[in-house]
């Protein structure tokens, strides 16, 4: 379904809230600007704007330890930045966090090809289960299921967000 970025952002943030998420750590990417605006405006959610994604893994871990359900929203480059914390804190201590990762360099994207190429292999190498969200209609259900899986497996779970999902310009229009 083709919708605007603002509409997609509302659906995604409501999906996170319905999944029980009450703390969201973020770092901007232009393709997520509507989404981050919606996070900023959200009631009943603690929003933590980060300077570097890795600190977000620590913040989410700390909040989880005192009873919060947490998500981090970042670009895949930021996911790479976070890897040491993901391994030696989230995986080592078995801490569930939802990782919402913008999939830069996805099929049809004209930039970040190398970043895109490494994204899924790195997730696989870390043993992090991931799902690609392309259709906004499926997103709330996927978010809820991913949170259940995270809590059940006591591990971070990644949801890759494509341009189409975020209501950004369709990649094919630039052909």
């Amino acid at each position: 379904m083709q919708i605007t970025g603002a509409e997609a952002a509302k659906i995604l943030v409501n999906g996170l809230k319905d999944a029980g998420i009450s703390l969201i750590a973020t770092l901007p990417d232009v393709n997520m600007s509507d989404l981050l605006h919606e996070v900023e405006e959200a009631q009943d959610v603690i929003h933590v704007p980060l300077c570097r994604e890795e600190e977000g893994m620590g913040i989410c871990a700390g909040a989880y330890l005192v009873g919060k359900k947490c998500a981090a929203i970042m670009q895949n480059g930021g996911f790479f930045n976070s890897n040491n914390a993901i391994v030696s804190t989230l995986l080592q201590y078995q801490i569930p966090v939802l990782l919402l990762i913008y999939y830069a360099g996805d099929i049809g994207d004209r930039t970040f090809g190398t970043t895109g190429a490494m994204t899924e292999p790195v997730l696989q190498a870390l043993g992090i289960r991931y799902y690609i969200m392309r259709d906004i209609d499926d997103a709330p259900e996927l978010i809820k299921r991913a949170q259940i899986l995270a809590e059940d497996s006591k591990k971070p779970i990644a949801l890759l967000m494509t341009k189409e999902l975020l209501g950004r310009r369709s990649a094919l229009k630039s052909l």
Partner: peptide, 9 residues
Amino acid sequence: SIALGMALG
């Protein structure tokens, strides 16, 4: 960072 997360939570 972990302490910050706890303090916010």
